[in-house]
Simulated scan of single mutants.
Amino acid sequence: MDIVKHPESRQLARTVKASAYVFEDQNSKRLMSYIAQIAPSEASVLIIGETGTGKELVARQIHQHSHRSKKPFIAVNCGALSDTLAETELFGHEKGAFTGAINNQIGWFEAAEGGTIFLDEIGDLSPNIQVKLLRILQENEVVRVGSRQTKKIDVRVIAATNIRLEEAVYAGNFREDLYFRLKVASLSILPLRLRTDDILPLAQHFIDDYSQSLKRPSPRLSAEAQQLLIDYHWPGNIRELENAIHHALLICKTGVIQSYDFQLSGFKHKLLSNDYDLSIYQGDNGHSLKQILLRWFEQGVDDLDERLEAEITEAAYEYCHKNQLHTAKLLGVSRNIIRARLIKHGFLEPNVRA
């Protein structure tokens, strides 16, 4: 007899709130329009966005607007799976396949039969699991650990990542064929700082939600508190906003939430807020970074994003005395990403390690 997994009781298939369904910003409304277009299809979807932007909630939105909505939605955090654990969790195992395998057990793909499987942090999967995932996408079948029998499945795959997978492909850490299989349809979720019209509606959503949990009337936001929420950079995106509102409600003693009721990372706000003065960075010729960018805009520089990436990568690499690990820490990305950028922009030979 097969043992069926129960996703609602497993940490890997976590449940989430409907917070990301609060979309008021024009950018968010365009995203929802695109979701409505791709949801009814059978296409695999790749969702790209920073941590905390609501990638799983968008995946659920796609599922709920498809003909699979009555079937399971299984969410799996690939970043929490070791290579050995990933294989048995995703594909299942047969009795006796390894020590402790006392029963047959289906994997998450079989548990999602007829529905949707959401693979979060897809870039963390090992090359071995990537190969097996590619086969599933190509053949629509799985092989349990310890078995030689294939089993046909009917599952739609939605994957998500907070890294640039094309760079991982370039660095040899992610299969190019799998990347294109996953990216039949793709969408990017903007960080909260770039969709400011969502901030106050989301804040009100969380105020109402947590006030109900605390069995108390919903307080209102003071004008100063509203302005703080709009101006703050939100490096943790929606998740950070939710936590900030929760904290403010716990300590607010009146019917009005003040700006000092929030517990925000002040140094990040100062460094990254929209009113941060770029002119403090002065080049050798006395021009500010802002002036240089404006001049490039006027000149119509081609591939501006690539040029900026190359300039920043080279400067950081030189500053860190050509140490890849230190460069990665300085820029807040992984060493693999730094290596891929160095190779792409010609600052490092592909076979050189540093």
Results as ranks from 00 to 15, higher is better:
255 G>R: 12
270 K>S: 13
229 L>M: 12
241 L>Y: 05
276 Y>F: 07
270 K>C: 08
235 P>K: 04
263 Q>R: 13
260 Y>V: 12
262 F>H: 07
225 A>E: 00
272 L>D: 02
218 S>L: 04
238 I>E: 02
284 D>G: 10
269 H>W: 05
219 P>C: 06
237 N>A: 04
227 Q>D: 03
260 Y>F: 07
260 Y>L: 09
282 Q>S: 14
281 Y>E: 09
247 H>Y: 05
232 Y>H: 06
229 L>P: 05
231 D>T: 10
263 Q>K: 09
263 Q>S: 15
241 L>I: 13
237 N>C: 08
281 Y>K: 11
288 S>Q: 05
240 E>S: 04
218 S>D: 02
266 G>N: 11
245 I>E: 00
233 H>R: 10
226 Q>A: 11
295 R>Y: 08
292 I>K: 08
278 L>T: 04
236 G>C: 06
228 L>W: 03
257 I>F: 02
249 L>D: 04
266 G>P: 01
282 Q>N: 07
223 A>H: 07
293 L>F: 15
245 I>A: 13
290 K>C: 10
265 S>G: 05
224 E>H: 07
278 L>S: 14
247 H>D: 00
224 E>C: 07
237 N>V: 05
248 A>Y: 14
294 L>Q: 15
284 D>E: 06
246 H>A: 03
285 N>D: 15
257 I>N: 01
254 T>K: 13
289 L>N: 05
242 E>I: 02
245 I>G: 03
291 Q>I: 06
279 S>L: 09
237 N>H: 02
280 I>L: 03
266 G>T: 09
234 W>C: 01
279 S>V: 12
259 S>P: 08
